[in-house]
Amino acid sequence: MISDIALFLFQSIVFPGVFFIVTLAFGSNWMYRKIYARLQRRVGPDSAGKYGFMQGFADFLKTASKEEIVPRSANQVIFRVLPIIAPVPIIVGIFFIPMMGLRGMISSPGDIYAIVFILTIVTAIEIVLGWSSGSKYSLIGASRSGMQLVSFGIPLIFSMLYPIIRAGSFNLMDIVLAQDGTNFGFLPRWNVLGLGVIAFVLFLISALAELEKPPFDTPEAETEIAGGWTLEYSGRSYAYILLMEDLKMVFVISIGVVLFLGGPLGPTFGISGWGLALLYFVYFSLKYFMVLIILTIISSGLARLKIRQIVFGSWSFLTPISIVFIILVMVLGGV
């Protein structure tokens, strides 16, 4: 009993818990920036740590050690408190993701509900963060963030429906297990290999919007509204907001990996126990970074869209496509 609790504590705090997740977040931040830079023929972060790997961590520490300025027009309580608790929902969300094994740290029959709920909560937090800072730029950024949530919520959820229908369950472990095995002896039965590729593309586009990366970085468009909802934050609050954005990247990409790329699945070579867990993790990381690279390349090749174009494009193309697709899948009976 005690060893169970100890194991749980170890898991939740050290590995694969908070510390690990935060490291992964900073790692993703570094990777995104490094690849983004290399695509533009720049060097990218290269000073903090080997190849600049510690850049995200360095940024966090440096920002956190700066003076925190609270504008007079801001809502004092929300402005001070909310940034600190902002990363928490995402960390909880990441606990649902099966990284080390087939089962996440938290598992329930309704995993997907929780994940969708957390994704929405995160955007809601952004809106409140922007609104509470009392700046007009932030307000515009917050309203844009809200508009994106409304526009991309439906395609995102509908794209998630495909794996659910195939697995016939809302539990992530079931969804992962449904992707086990191979077709024709060599092709893994991942959702992305087949009709699910449409859902995966929809998911990627919605994910970019959720992550507020180009071309959907309108809520914090630097050259238009000077940083949008993050504008007024400084010091420790801003450090937590940075952390939250990095964590969001981990969260959203992990969902994609689990739902469409078979999560931690891969050839096991008959290994079991801790070795298998490690192997699962290696597979998961490979897939994770592959999706990250794809996202980076997409976002570096496009200009920022206007919020009108985003809303219009989402409601007139993405949403109908996703609805038609899901109806098709339902009719065909979860191919």
Partner: peptide, 19 residues
């Protein structure tokens, strides 16, 4: 076109000189 250029860039040496 741009995508090909970008992927090529990924494997090219960066132009930055770390003066």
């Amino acid at each position: 076109m741009l995508i090909i250029e970008l992927i090529k860039n990924l494997f090219r040496r960066p132009e930055t000189v770390k003066y």
